[in-house]
Design a protein around this nucleic acid. Structure first.
Lengths: 266, 266
DNA sequence: AACCAATGGTTCAAATAATGAACCGACATA
DNA sequence: TATGTCGGTTCATTATTTGAACCATTGGTT
């Protein structure tokens, strides 16, 4: 791993739960030498990627990201595109719709939209990180990711977010083929209790899966007709989102009308 | 300069004008070896800080910034705070208010607010970069920055954005003391023709200047009474913004009521 | 008050990772 | 076919990164 990667990976230790971290703690978390972390933080700080809180204490993410995010969004208005599609999708289904992007080995939220049709709804949070094994979106991404990522991902111990989280790698592997034939992944209570989530993958110009679009509803509201309705709408909107973003589903991706397919070996 | 700094500085070559850059071009711009740039881009790409456009062509900023910006803003809601203050300031003055943060040797926009009192107003742009020598905000920041930054900054050739831009380093240096006694910098048409801009510095917890808040009005609308009104409102709102963000103006910063001060040597 | 275990920060020889000139094959232009 | 540029790759040389040990402070415990 190059020096730059080490520096950048330091940034991943900042999260909702631990928004600011001290030097020694960060050295411990990253497994790097304290002096190394100190120097790397210094370089990151010089560019506004981290900053020190108050007078000489812990570090936190810096203001540079605001500028770069604005610049990125100005040139590649993913969030805008996603938000429009999500609003439509949320209106059509009456449930919460959201989209997240693959970032290393986790998904990070890009945007979400609520419906006001029901008194209860699944709440989302910017800056939340979704694991690949415990969420519908994660499973959708896994199903369309190269074997290397799946193996890498499933070789690590899988954390149970709820009592219903699937933590057996083989069980997860067994789900993937049917997700591929459906084009949709489902997860019941895997990330949060009482949330039934459907998700479909999003692809880039090289037909590589870059994230997922999902509809999340309370388990109590889920019925088979609703599932069908969500499934159809989700597939359509995910497809359209991929297209608007300039991407293409892979050849193996099911078309709108279910049909017989030959399974191809990658 | 460390390797990490080199990698991070590559990101600064992406701008509104050149949102995507090829490998060779980036090597030329940065003065680094092509192989080096290639490797650095690879590491940046692995973390989502850059990505390649379409199939193996130019590079552009990646999606990671969206997540990190959201995370930063969640923990340090600068933009929200600024937006509230700017809305107030814009309402009070009837003109466009904006705030920008010091990022290396330039200012980048954080937020802005328009007024609807007049038919014409100064328009702002996210992701725009303001130079220190040609803008009111820049002068305000220079006046409260360490001598080293000022020297560094003014040793380079200064670009004339308009016919009214001040490009003589000595002339700029001569402005700084009066800005310090006023607590406010003014610039007439330095960045864009016909724009009269007032700006006040914003400080962090260590009393270091981190950016500026400004009011920009058409030159044609500017009168002495308006200047006084803007000055008072701007000073008050800048002060409050500094305070809400957890910062402190330095001891030398003028209080609301103008008063005699002894000039201190730093 | 003395002690201990943290913290952020610093040093410098040793080890490692970054570097850059040259080289590919592919593509475009002429 | 010849020429220039592109993105990408190689590998011996070089320069940067690294990490153990060491400070000076701070805060808690005895």
């Amino acid at each position: 791993m190059g020096t730059t990667s080490k520096a950048l990976s330091l940034l991943n230790f900042f999260s909702r739960a631990t928004p600011q971290i001290g030097l020694s703690e960060l050295a411990r978390l990253s497994g790097l030498n304290k002096a190394t972390v100190y120097r790397l933080l210094g370089e990151l700080a010089a560019h506004g990627f981290v900053e020190q809180v108050g007078t000489g204490r812990e570090y936190r993410l810096g203001p540079a990201f605001l500028r770069l995010a604005a610049l990125r969004e100005k040139h590649v208005p993913m969030r805008d595109v996603a938000l429009k599609q999500l609003t439509d999708l949320s209106d059509a289904t009456g449930e919460t719709a959201h989209m997240s992007l693959l970032n290393g080995e986790v998904l990070s939220n890009l945007a979400y939209a609520y419906s006001n049709r029901h008194g209860t709804m699944v709440m989302m949070d910017d800056a939340e990180v979704l694991e690949l094994h415990s969420t519908g979106s994660g499973l959708a991404v896994l199903a369309y990711s190269p074997k290397s990522l799946v193996d890498e991902m499933l070789s690590r111990p899988l954390k149970a977010r709820t009592s219903q989280t699937i933590t057996d790698p083989n069980q997860i592997r067994a789900l993937l083929p049917s997700i591929r034939t459906e084009g949709i992944a489902a997860s019941v209570g895997g990330f949060e209790e009482d949330v039934f989530s459907h998700a479909a993958p999003i692809f880039d110009a090289r037909s590589i899966c870059i994230g997922a679009m999902a509809v999340a509803a309370p388990v109590s509201r889920m019925t088979d007709p609703l599932r069908m309705m969500i499934r159809d709408n989700l597939l359509a909107h995910a497809r359209q989102t991929t297209r608007i973003l300039g991407g293409f589903p892979p050849d193996t991706f099911p078309t709108r009308e279910p049909q017989m397919m030959l399974q191809k070996e990658a």
